[in-house]
Design a protein around this nucleic acid. Sequence first.
DNA 1: CCCACAACCGAACGATCGCTCGGTCGGTCC
DNA 2: GGACCGACCGAGCGATCGTTCGGTTGTGGG
Lengths: 219, 219
Amino acid sequence: MNSGVEPTSHVRDDGVWGDGAWRLYGDEEDLPVPLAAALAAFAEHGYHGTSVRDIAARAGLSVPGLYHHYPSKQSLLQGLLERTMSDLLERSEAALAQAGPAPLEQFDAVVESLLRFHMYRRARAFVGSTETRSLEPDFRLQYIALRDRQQRMVDGIVEAGVASGVFSCPNPKDAARAVATMCVGVSTWYRPQGELGPDELVSRYLLIARQMVGVMPGA
Amino acid sequence: MNSGVEPTSHVRDDGVWGDGAWRLYGDEEDLPVPLAAALAAFAEHGYHGTSVRDIAARAGLSVPGLYHHYPSKQSLLQGLLERTMSDLLERSEAALAQAGPAPLEQFDAVVESLLRFHMYRRARAFVGSTETRSLEPDFRLQYIALRDRQQRMVDGIVEAGVASGVFSCPNPKDAARAVATMCVGVSTWYRPQGELGPDELVSRYLLIARQMVGVMPGA
DNA sequence: CCCACAACCGAACGATCGCTCGGTCGGTCC
DNA sequence: GGACCGACCGAGCGATCGTTCGGTTGTGGG
């Protein structure tokens, strides 16, 4: 399986993200054709609202042609979400690793990486957040575990910020969840051709996110 | 159509919400049986993932029995979302009307009403936010208009707060959207039997929401 | 007493669903 | 040049989809 364009990625040869590479996104087409077709269809009509025939047509294939590459409709969704979550996690872990040791630096880096992902990988992120319930139980467990790992990453940074006295919030876990929710929500309304560009959005939302965890404006 | 239990509501005889009545929620069963069945099914499997036969079974009806009350599967979704949005709007407009004139009072009231709705009417709110794309185009336009009205209500309060100098945020619209996103997000993770009770959640999230719009903690 | 009507149901309609059977075609290797 | 294989497709499988037809009940009014 997986014929066709296996695209180049931003990952360096050794699998390590270069400095700031977690900010860079190629022009949407780093997916195999059938997965890109499934992504477009799922984002538009949802998993159950999409027929295999629709995906095949978008991919420029016949139905058996599509099944030659992926054994089932479910495997298309799983392949999509697997790439989505690992991309998101790799990027935010790279952002964290490359940030300084201060909680505020780490917070800014991870929030920025979340925001950029949900803008540049909008459709994928949207499908990932709306089609969890369409996953078969086994895979759903794996998937949720990755989501939790992402959330705990934010939790940890906020808790460290509170411990160091730079952040000020009585309930760090709630604040962290609210910040993550806000970032994920970007994928539901952001439009590339909208009035708000990525850099401008990042700076605005970073301010809001800092206030959510009680960072003094002058910090 | 609409046989069966037409439930009592919290609306007073004249259609006006009594003082603080927007905070009160009956025990979930204020829906006609078929709509309650559709709600449960849609929340679990999504609109396209739910069969009419499943809804009929949950409602204790045969399929033609269900069609006797509602002319189509789509009409079940529309009936559900129509009630959802009008309930939400009525409650938050009542909260706003009953709050004092100060932007902070109004902000607190509307945010609290949003939070409570997304806890007590969790399933409805969840379906409302995930199945917009399953609506037929005409109704979707109406529905989105109501969502926008709700959002503009929050926008207006935040702008008034900024104008009065009590709130401090450079981009009121973005902050308002982020606050609303956070409140809506509650419906995706809140569980009634969870460790966080409604009142405790309201007080925690109200603090966060205030910080998002730059209210000084001592205000 | 009968009739109108709301409330329901068994059975089945045509359409579409996810998926597969049985191929064809163009390379590549020996 | 024949054997093999990956890439693909036309046709169609059985199942399920949303919806409807043609009833049967039970009940309240004239």
